[in-house]
Design a protein around this nucleic acid. Structure first.
Length: 862
RNA sequence: GGAUGUUUAGCUCAGUUGGGAGAGCAUCGCCUUUACACGGCGGAGGUCAGAGGUUCGAGCCCUCUAACAUCCACCA
C-alpha cells in the first residue's frame, strides 16, 4: 500500500472516527493506568455548534489524545446542557412562527415541543463532535435534565435550603420582559445605548409657581415615585426639606426628604425615589419605610398604578407621558445622552429592575470557601495564571445569585406550598395528600445544574466507582467568557458538596473573532461554520489552525489563509511519509532496525535533533502551550527533517551499505513526528501510521515518544552544522552572483574541523565538482569558522570579488566591534558567567582571524 | 471609578529561568532537482508603543505615560 501523491483529506478522514468509536478506543476504564479526566463543557441544545465550540473542543481533544498517548486512562465525558432560557427562547420563537404562544398550549405541551427541539439538536451536535474527531466516551454521556441530574438538583437545593444558603425573598431583580423571567446579575449585558435625560418640574404644593428640577431617564417609573431626595449638606435645598411636591406624572403629593446618598454634584442634586424599580431606591425606601409601588406587569406593560396609561408598553407609555407632561408645562428640557443600558443576555430585551419575590443563593459563605481554598495546596491552577485574579476579584464582591426563573424549560423548583396553611415543603415529589399542595411555578437557573456538572456526571450523589476514580477532574478547558457563569459556580458547589476542588487545572482560552477582529455574530453575518471549513480544508487543518494560532487566554482571528497553510504543512508531512514509504517498498527490506554501530554523522545528527525536539515539545504540551509546542515541531519537521535530513538521506539511500540503516532512521523519526502531530491532527496521523511497516491497530493505541539520551550524539551536532552552514554559504553565494543553483564549483577545505565522511553531501547538495583538502588557495570567496575554511575556487571578475570581499569585511568589522565592546566591559568579565565570557572571547578570536585572512586576500587582489 | 490585557516585519501573530529578533501570509530573485509547485533555494523588510529604572547585559523584570481592547461596579 502506498500513499497518494496528494494528501486528500476527504479520503483520509473517511471512516476513521466510526472505527475508533466502535473499537471502544474512546472509552475510559483501564485501571492499570493512572487516570486523566475531563468533561466537555456541555453545549446548549439550542442549535448547531459554531467555531467557538470548535476551538474549545479542539484544545480539549488535543489534551486528551496527548494524555492517552502518554499512558493515561483518559476520560473525556460528553453531554449537553438543556440551556433553560436559551432553548425556551428558541422554542418560543418557533411557536410564534405558527402564530401561537406557550401560554396557548400550556406547560405540558410546551415541554413536549422543547424535548423535540432538544432531540433534534442533540443529534446534530453528535454529528458535529464526530466531525471534529473528539475522543468522547459516549458510554458515559449525560444531559443536565436527565434523571440523575433531577435527583441531584433536588438534593442540592434541599441541602442548601436546610443550611440557610438558599432563601426566598423580595428583591429588586433584573427582569426580562420579553422572556418574562428574572435574571441573575451576570446575565445582564450592559451596552452603550442612546437615551434621554428628561428634566421635569416637581412643583411645590404650597407654591405651585415654584418647583424642583428632577432629571430621569425612565419617566414611566414616575408612577412609582414615593419621594424626592436631596443631600442634607446641599445648601441649595436645605430649606425645602420636608416640603411636599407634586409628581407631574400623576399629581400625587410626595415629600422631599434628605439623605446623604444623593450626590450633590450629579445632575440637579435632586433625585426621585422609586423603590419598586431601582435597587438603590429600594434600599432608601426601606430605610425610610416608603411604600413599594410597582407600576409594571411582568411583560413590560404598565399596570393599574399607571392610571390611564395602564396597558401601554413601557416605551409607548414613556412617549405619551412625556408629551402629556409637556402639555402641562412641566417639561423643562430633554437631553440626549449615551448611557449603559442593561440587556438580557439571551433575548437582548432591555431589562427592567423590578421588585419581586425570587429564590436566591447566599453567596458570601460559598465565595469565602473558594477564596480560602485558593490559599491552600489544593487550589485550582489557572492557565494562564492571571485568570485566577479574575475569579478572586469576582468572588470578593459578588451579589447573591437569583436562581428562580419564570420559565417552563428546566428543573422545576422542588418546593411545594400548602394551599391552606401556605406552609412550605422541599420535596422531590408532590406530597401524599397532593390536593393540598401546589408546586412552585418557577424553574431553576440553567447554571444551577451546570454548576454540578463535574461530579453529577460521574454519579454523585452516589459514591460510584467513576466518582471515586475520576473525581476531581484533572483539567477543565473553557473560554474566559464563562468564568463567572460556570467555572466559579462549579468551584463553590464542588467544594460545598464534595469537599474537594472540582478540577485541578483550569485552562482558559480566548474567543475567536472574524478576520477584522470583530466578534462573530448573527447580525453581522460574519460567523464561520466549522463544517464549511472542514469540507474545504479537512478537520485536521482546522484543528491544527485553531490550536496553534491561539495564544493562551488571548482572542484570535479566523483567517482562512492560515487554515490553508496548516493544510500545506500537513501535505508536507504527508509527502515526507510518502517518500519514506516509497523508498522502503523499493528496498525489499522486511525488518527495519537501527544499527547503532553503523550510524553515520547525519543519522546521529537527526536523531539528536529529534530527541531535543521531543524534550521541548513534551515540556510545552505538559503546560497546555500547544501553540509553542506545535511551533517547535514545525521547525523540526521543515528545517531539520524535510529540508535537511531527507535530502541528505538520498545520498546514503543510494548505497546498499547504508540503505537499511538510513531507512530505519527515517522511519524512526517519521513515526515520532507522526506521534507528535497526532493530537493536533489525528486523522492524517492515523492514515500514515497505519501505513508504517510496523504498527498497532490504531495510532490511538500507540505511545508518545519519550526522550531517550541514548539517541543523543553530541559530537555529531557541530560537525553536521558545519556542513549545513557550508551548503547554505555556497547556495547564497550562487544566488548573490546570479549563478543558477546547479552551477558546478570547485572547493578547497582547510583545517581539521570538517569531517571527511561528509564530503559526498557537499558534492551533491552544493554541486561541488572537485573538492580538495588542506591546500593553498588564492580564492577570495570563503567561509571560515574555528578550524575550518571553505574556499570557492571560481573565477569571478575583479569588481564582483571586491564587492563580495567588502561585504564580508564590513560584516566582520561590525562583529569585531561588538565583541570588543563587550570584552572591554570589565563588569561583564567579572560578573557574567564564565561560559558566556569564554564564548565571547572565542568569537572575538575567530573574527579577527577571519579578518586577517580577508585582508590578505584583498591585498593580493590589488 | 476598579481590574485585566494588548502594543514586535506590509498584514496576522509567536517569542519563560534576561545572553546576538521569529513564523505564516504578502513581496522580490532563481529553480519544472524523480516526496511535495499545496513545492525547493535565496533575499529584502524591525529604534520590539514612548520615557525612566534595575542589570555586565532588557522585547522579556520594575515604575510612569500614551493608544486600543475586555471585564466588573456606578449611572437619579
Amino acid at each position: 500500500m502506498s500513499l497518494d501523491k496528494r494528501y486528500d483529506f476527504k479520503k483520509v478522514e473517511e471512516g476513521k472516527y466510526e472505527n475508533w468509536k466502535s473499537k471502544g478506543y474512546f472509552e475510559a476504564g483501564d485501571k492499570s493506568k493512572n487516570k486523566f479526566s475531563m468533561v466537555i463543557p456541555p453545549p446548549n441544545v439550542t442549535g448547531k455548534l459554531h467555531i467557538g465550540h470548535s476551538i474549545d473542543t479542539t484544545i480539549q481533544d488535543i489534551t486528551c489524545r496527548y494524555k492517552k498517548a502518554k499512558g493515561f486512562d483518559v476520560l473525556y465525558l460528553p453531554g449537553c446542557d438543556h440551556a433553560g432560557i436559551a432553548t425556551q427562547a428558541k422554542v418560543d420563537a418557533k411557536l410564534k412562527e405558527q402564530g401561537i404562544s406557550r401560554f396557548d398550549i400550556g406547560r405540558e405541551a410546551f415541554l413536549k415541543e422543547a424535548y423535540k427541539w432538544k432531540d433534534e439538536y442533540h443529534a446534530l451536535i453528535h454529528k458535529q463532535w464526530a466531525k471534529m474527531g473528539l475522543m468522547l466516551d459516549y458510554s458515559r454521556e449525560r444531559f443536565t435534565l436527565d434523571e440523575g441530574f433531577q435527583h441531584a438538583v433536588y438534593l442540592v437545593f434541599k441541602k442548601l435550603y436546610d443550611s440557610g444558603l438558599i432563601y426566598r425573598g423580595e428583591r429588586i431583580v433584573n427582569y426580562d420582559p420579553q422572556m418574562r423571567t428574572a435574571l441573575s446579575n451576570v446575565e445582564v449585558i450592559y451596552k452603550k445605548d442612546k437615551g434621554y435625560f428628561y428634566y421635569f418640574k416637581y412643583r411645590f404644593v404650597d407654591n405651585p409657581a415654584t418647583y424642583l428640577t428632577v432629571a430621569t431617564t425612565r419617566p414611566e417609573t414616575m408612577f412609582g415615585d414615593t419621594c424626592l431626595v436631596v443631600n442634607p449638606n446641599d445648601d441649595r435645598y436645605r430649606d425645602i426639606i420636608g416640603k411636599m411636591v407634586i409628581n407631574p406624572a400623576n399629581n400625587e403629593k410626595i415629600p422631599v426628604i434628605a439623605d446623604e446618598y444623593v450626590d450633590i454634584e450629579f445632575g440637579t442634586g435632586v433625585m426621585k425615589c422609586t423603590p419598586a424599580h431601582d435597587p438603590n431606591d429600594y434600599l432608601l425606601g426601606k430605610k425610610y419605610n416608603m411604600k413599594n409601588i410597582l407600576v409594571m406587569n411582568v411583560d413590560g406593560t404598565m399596570n393599574e398604578n399607571a392610571g390611564k396609561y395602564k396597558g401601554l408598553t413601557r416605551e409607548k407609555c414613556r412617549d405619551t407621558l412625556v408629551n402629556d407632561i409637556k402639555n402641562d408645562d412641566n417639561l423643562i428640557k430633554i437631553e440626549e445622552i449615551i448611557h449603559d443600558v442593561g440587556h438580557s443576555e439571551r433575548s437582548d430585551a432591555v431589562v427592567e429592575p423590578i421588585l419581586s419575590k425570587q429564590w436566591f443563593i447566599k453567596m458570601k459563605p460559598l465565595a469565602q470557601s473558594v477564596l480560602e481554598n485558593q490559599k491552600t495546596n489544593n487550589k485550582v491552577n489557572f492557565f494562564p495564571k492571571r485568570f485566577e485574579k479574575t475569579l478572586i476579584n469576582w468572588m470578593e464582591k459578588c451579589d447573591d445569585w437569583c436562581i428562580s426563573r419564570q420559565l417552563w424549560w428546566g428543573h422545576r423548583i422542588p418546593v411545594y406550598y400548602n394551599k391552606t396553611t401556605n406552609k412550605l415543603l422541599i420535596s422531590e415529589k408532590i406530597p401524599d395528600n397532593s390536593g393540598d399542595w401546589v408546586q412552585d411555578e418557577d424553574v431553576l437557573d440553567t447554571w444551577f445544574s451546570s454548576a454540578l456538572w463535574p461530579f453529577v456526571t460521574l454519579g454523585w450523589p452516589n459514591n460510584t466507582d467513576d466518582l471515586k476514580r475520576y473525581y476531581p477532574l484533572d483539567c477543565l478547558i473553557t473560554g474566559y467568557d464563562i468564568i463567572f457563569f460556570w467555572v466559579a459556580r462549579m468551584y463553590f458547589q464542588g467544594l460545598h458538596f464534595t469537599n474537594s476542588r472540582p478540577f485541578k487545572d483550569v485552562v482558559i482560552h480566548g474567543l475567536i473573532r472574524d478576520k477584522l477582529g470583530r466578534k462573530m455574530s448573527k447580525t453581522l453575518g460574519n460567523g464561520v461554520d466549522p463544517i464549511d471549513v472542514i469540507n474545504n480544508y479537512g478537520v485536521d487543518s482546522l484543528r491544527y489552525f485553531l490550536a496553534t494560532t491561539a495564544s493562551p487566554g488571548l482572542d484570535m482571528r479566523y483567517d482562512e489563509e492560515k487554515v490553508k497553510s496548516a493544510s500545506n504543512y500537513l501535505n508536507k508531512i504527508w509527502n515526507s511519509a510518502r517518500f519514506i514509504l516509497m523508498k522502503y517498498e523499493e528496498s525489499n527490506i522486511s525488518e527495519l532496525k537501527i544499527d547503532f554501530n553503523k550510524l553515520n554523522l547525519i543519522d546521529k545528527y537527526i536523531l539528536s535533533k529529534l530527541e531535543e525536539t521531543i524534550q521541548s515539545v513534551t515540556k510545552k504540551m505538559d503546560c497546555y502551550e500547544y501553540g509553542v509546542a506545535s511551533n517547535i515541531l514545525y521547525n523540526f519537521v521543515y528545517d531539520d527533517f524535510c529540508s535537511f535530513y531527507i535530502e541528505m538521506s538520498k545520498v546514503s539511500l543510494s548505497s546498499s551499505d547504508s540503505l537499511k540503516n538510513t531507512l530505519s532512521v527515517l522511519m524512526y523519526v517519521l513515526k515520532a513526528i507522526i506521534m507528535m502531530i497526532y493530537p493536533f491532527s489525528p486523522f492524517i496521523s492515523e492514515e500514515i501510521y497505519l501505513n508504517l511497516p510496523e504498527h498497532k491497530d490504531s495510532i490511538m493505541l500507540e505511545d508518545y515518544p519519550e526522550f531517550n539520551n541514548d539517541y543523543v550524539f553530541e559530537d555529531s551536532i557541530n560537525k553536521v552544522e558545519l556542513l549545513r552552514k557550508s551548503i547554505d554559504f555556497i547556495r547564497s553565494y550562487k544566488v548573490e552572483n546570479n549563478l543558477v543553483p546547479n552551477t558546478k564549483i570547485d572547493l578547497i577545505i582547510n583545517g581539521n574541523d570538517f569531517d571527511k565522511s561528509l564530503v559526498s553531501y557537499l558534492s551533491r547538495f552544493a554541486f561541488a565538482n572537485k573538492i580538495e583538502f588542506n591546500k593553498q588557495s588564492s580564492s577570495s570567496i570563503f567561509f571560515a569558522e574555528n578550524d575550518f575554511v571553505l574556499y570557492i575556487e571560481n573565477n569571478l571578475n575583479k569588481d564582483e570579488i571586491f564587492e563580495t570581499l567588502n561585504k564580508q569585511k564590513e560584516f566582520l568589522l561590525s562583529e569585531i566591534e561588538r565583541s570588543k565592546k563587550i570584552l572591554s566591559n570589565e563588569t561583564f568579565l567579572k560578573k557574567a558567567p564564565e561560559q558566556k565570557v569564554n564564548l565571547e572571547k572565542e568569537k572575538y578570536e575567530k573574527y579577527t582571524k577571519e579578518l586577517s585572512l580577508l585582508e590578505e586576500k584583498i591585498n593580493k587582489l590589488k
